[in-house]
Amino acid sequence: MDPIISARGIQRSFGKHKALRNIDLEIKKGESVAIFGPNGAGKTTLLKVLSTIIMPTKGNVIVNGIDLRRDSSSVRELIGVISHQTYLYDGLTARENLRFFGKMYGMERSLLEERIRELLGHVGLLGRADDRVGAFSRGMKQRLSIARALVHRPEVLFMDEPYTGLDQRSAKAFENVLRALDKDKVTKIMVSHNIERAMQLCDRLIVMDRGEIVYDRMAKEIEGKEDFKLAYSSLICMDTDAEGVSNLW
C-alpha cells in the first residue's frame, strides 16, 4: 500500500537550533501512530511540519501524493489538527465556530449543517450548540476542538497532546470518536505523554529524541521488548520510573 505520508530528510532549524535532523518517515493510510519523546525532542515541530503550519528547512513531505512545498493548500484540505490550543473563537457559539471552519474548507451549506449536528452529538455538545464558546469549560472547548478538526472529514488527523483539559468521561468520549474514525480509514498521528492511552489507541509507536527518530515499531511487535522499555525509560521516565513501563503489559 502506498504511504499517505512520506517524509524524506526533513530538517527544521530555528536559528542555530536544529529541531529536526534528517527525519525519514512513512505512514500508511489508516495507520494510528503515537509519537513520544522528552520535552524538546521535536515531536510538536514534526507535527507542525507534517500539518503545513511550518515549512521544513530541508527535505520533502508528500501527503497523499501531493508535495507539501508545491501545494500546501491541497494538503490542508486532507488534514485535521487537534492541538492543546483549541483554535476556537470565544465570541462565537459552538455552532458558529464549526460553521465558520466548515466554510473555510468550502463545504456546502446543507451538508455542513448536517455535519455540525452530527459532530456536536458525537462530542456531547448538541445541547450547548448555541452557547458562546467563551462560556465553555476547558474540557468542553477541547471536545469542540475535536469536532472542529473533523468537520471537513479529513483523511489524516494530527493530534498534539489531545488529552489536555479532558476529564475521564471526556477522554473516553474522545477515544470513541477516534475509534469511529477507523471505519473511514482515517490516518491518526498523535503526540502524547500518556503512553497507556496511546498504546491502547495506536498501532505504531515512535520515540523521538533531539530531533531524531530513535525508535519506530508496530505496537504488537514491542510487547515486553527490552529495547522499547530501554528507549522509553531512558528518554521519557526518570530512572526510578523504569519499572513502571513493565506494568503497561
Partner: peptide, 18 residues
C-alpha cells in the same frame, strides 16, 4: 490579538485558504 487567543490564527492558517 483576538486571532492569537486560543491559537485561532494557527487554526486559520491550517485551512485551505490563500
Amino acid at each position: 490579538a483576538s486571532e492569537i487567543e486560543n491559537g485561532c490564527l494557527e487554526g486559520l492558517k491550517l485551512c485551505p485558504v490563500d
